[in-house]
Amino acid sequence: MTRKLQVPLVTAEVDGQRVQVPEASTLLEAIRAAGKDVPTLCYHPVLEPIGACRICVVEVEGSRTLVPACIRRVEAGMRVRTDTPRVQLSRRMVVELLQGSVDTSLAPDVRRYAAEYGARPERWEPFAQEGPRAKHAPKVDNDLYVRDLDRCILCYRCVRACGEEVQNSFAIAVAGRGLAARIDPGFDLPLPDSACVFCGNCVAVCPTEALVPKTQFEMRRAGTWEEGRQQVVTTICPYCGVGCKLNLHVQDNRIVKVTAPLEDPITRGFLCVKGRFGWTYVHAGTAADPGGGAEPSTPPGNL
């Protein structure tokens, strides 16, 4: 089983440094192989790249435009520059455009890049119009996760996770066009009437809390969400026999969120509804039951 295929290598140059990577590697992979990095937003390590957010752009010698590193394949002899003023301008602008169009306050990556590239979204404010940036209330149409589309940067990660790459539910897609494009289950259906199976795998890949577990959403509102005080304990899901690893996020002896470790080859970070949301019973009947029960059929509470 350890038979290794001989993959031909290609040589490219990253910021003047020669690097050898397997054929069909992306520029991002080559850049990382060279010990460098570029910022990414729509890129996610377990999803296919789509090159939509354009923050990972780099200069490639001979190319008229900048090139998205996440999706472009390395070619032999390519000379790549990852941090020129031209590149920095694009990255700063992408961050400014995002910050000016949605609420990125809970998007740690965007905030980090904003600081790194010196984004000044306020310089667009004198020109801002009300209409196209109208705010929408968070959509709370079920008790497991919330859609706060004002935070959505349209990275398509959720759509990819819901679609053929992972979950194959195809419950959400991009609807509308241009600035009005948004993630929608179709015909503006509430999620429970859609094809959604509430695996929360979209939530797992969302980089901005546009999709967020309801527990987290409510604790944030109440001001009690304190990531710094949370411990993460890895265990195994209590339901079926697949053996998914769960990361239990625990605050004050309570589970506040469940995720799955990306590096686990069984889940790759993806779970089903029971694994991600079906944990509330361990707190049933105790004070501040976070999930509560829908007419529990069993007397709640440990004895």
């Binding site: 354009r54 923050i55 455009l97 600035l179």
Partner: peptide, 8 residues
């Protein structure tokens, strides 16, 4: 609406 530079 796909890419940020054009959409926004």
């Amino acid at each position: 609406g796909q890419c940020v530079p054009c959409r926004v």
